[in-house]
């Protein structure tokens, strides 16, 4: 139980609070770049969490996963996003359909709901409440971002937040899935983002905006 051990303890006990913080901040973020930064931060916290778990549970595979998380979600994806924002020359506003105040309240409600959900569903899982609530809150926040932010980029970001939540849930309940599967999932996420990037280019080429709520030609 050296210094690393203490750090591990701290990370495991307090990271959920940081995650809640990122959630609240994501809700009020007005600029895409801010949101991307927050996402990077969030991913970094999760990566730390992965490393801590790997250390504590002595899972060598998990180090690889942690490294992947760090490389992809903390480094690669935010960079790619910044690149996209730059190349698309879009207005950097997230175009929320809710005001920041409403968003914060909704985020708070989400956090509350997550706890409530954990209390009613989580009985079977025997894991600490906070991390699980954080995971669920992340999923819900991702969903909320996707529904309320009109920019295509923000939808991608919401999806990533949602995915973070799922990943976190898997991590804290089962200490992660088998390595091959994890790698596959990461590959999928990367490819998915690549494709979505292609499509955002196409959208901005074809429609000259990135507001997905205006893509309403196909309906009925």
């Amino acid at each position: 139980m050296g210094l690393v051990g203490i750090a591990t303890e701290k990370i495991l006990s307090s990271f959920s609070v940081f995650l809640f913080l990122t959630i609240l901040l994501l809700a009020v973020a007005r600029r895409i770049s801010t949101s991307v930064l927050l996402f990077g931060l969030q991913s970094a916290i999760i990566a730390a969490e992965v490393f801590a778990t790997a250390f504590q549970e002595k899972l060598p595979e998990a180090y690889i996963v942690g490294a992947l998380v760090f490389a992809i979600k903390v480094v690669a994806i935010p960079r790619a996003f910044f690149l996209l924002v730059k190349r698309l020359k879009t207005v950097r506003d997230v175009k929320a359909s809710t005001t920041p105040t409403q968003s914060v309240f909704i985020a708070a409600a989400i956090i509350y709901l997550s706890y409530a959900a954990v209390h009613s569903y989580g009985g079977a899982v025997h894991v600490p409440d906070d991390p699980l609530a954080a995971a669920i809150a992340l999923i819900l926040t991702g969903a909320f971002l996707m529904v309320s932010r009109k920019k295509a980029l923000m939808q991608m970001l919401g999806l990533l937040v949602l995915e973070n939540g799922i990943f976190l849930a898997a991590l804290i309940t089962t200490f992660g899935m088998p390595l091959v599967i994890e790698i596959g999932i990461f590959f999928d996420i990367l490819m998915g983002l690549l494709l979505m990037g292609i499509f955002t280019f196409r959208i901005s080429d074809t429609f000259e905006h990135l507001d997905v709520s205006k893509l309403r030609k196909l309906r009925g």
């Binding site: 196409r202 429609f207 997905v212």
Partner: peptide
């Protein structure tokens, strides 16, 4: 493009 985006997301 619209359909593709919706499909993907």
């Amino acid at each position: 493009v619209e359909a593709g985006w919706k499909y993907l997301i």
